[in-house]
């Protein structure tokens, strides 16, 4: 008889091929779908996150875990109401105007998403106006901006200014990160928080959400 622990283990192991078989058994055995999600799939990801942070898991392994979770979700989702699915919050991410670096941003998105947030990815080289219109459209809780160049970091300031002009600044928390960005820069560009890397970004988002 399959167990919820086995589902978790599949997620930890990134067993993309095996997860659906086990989830199916649990569904057939009338395990409550929300238990499969919370005590199986999400519980697995909750083991993965600290292992990644401590360096015991690599990113590709975390990605396989996330993929495994999603495979499991495919089977369970039809069984629950849309309203039962909770999200920790909605986060919008983009690399600022003029900046083409996306690998760090993509890692960040993967980490945030698999920790339970809904993510809207604006991509790279995102103009100030684009941030503002996307905020109006998607109404995120948090907006994350990244920059990898000393000559694009200032765009964070102009983006925040544009948010003020567009009347959406106080509707979101703004967090920033990237190689040339120091914690002090938060005040300078009038943002709300700074994350050093993908792992700490998740913690930052959790803190931000708690304060909303």
């Amino acid at each position: 008889m399959a167990t919820l622990e086995q589902v978790s283990q599949c997620v930890v192991d990134g067993d993309v091929a095996g997860v659906q078989g086990i989830v199916k058994q649990l569904i057939d055995a009338k395990t409550p779908p929300m238990d499969i999600i919370n005590k199986g799939l999400v519980a697995g990801m909750n083991i993965v996150a600290p292992l990644f942070k401590s360096g015991e898991m690599f990113v590709p392994e975390v990605m396989e875990s996330a993929e495994t979770m999603n495979k499991g979700m495919e089977l369970v989702k039809p069984l629950i109401l849309d309203t039962d699915m909770t999200t920790k919050g909605k986060i919008m991410i983009g690399t600022v105007n003029g900046d083409l670096h996306d690998i760090g941003k993509n890692l960040l998105i993967m980490m945030i998403e698999s920790s339970g947030y809904t993510v809207i990815d604006l991509g790279v080289d995102v103009k100030e106006e684009t941030f503002v219109s996307a905020i109006k459209e998607h109404q995120p809780d948090i907006v994350g901006m990244s920059s990898m160049l000393t000559t694009t970091m200032m765009k964070m300031e102009s983006t925040v200014a544009e948010m003020v002009k567009g009347g959406v600044r106080d509707k979101v928390k703004v967090i920033i990160g990237g190689a040339p960005i120091s914690p002090d820069f938060v005040d300078e560009v009038k943002a709300d928080g700074y994350a050093e890397d993908a792992s700490t970004a998740v913690e930052l988002c959790d803190r931000m959400m708690a304060s909303i």
Partner: peptide, 8 residues
């Protein structure tokens, strides 16, 4: 070398 934090 490169510029410090600034707009261009």
């Amino acid at each position: 070398f490169t510029l410090p934090g600034m707009d261009v």
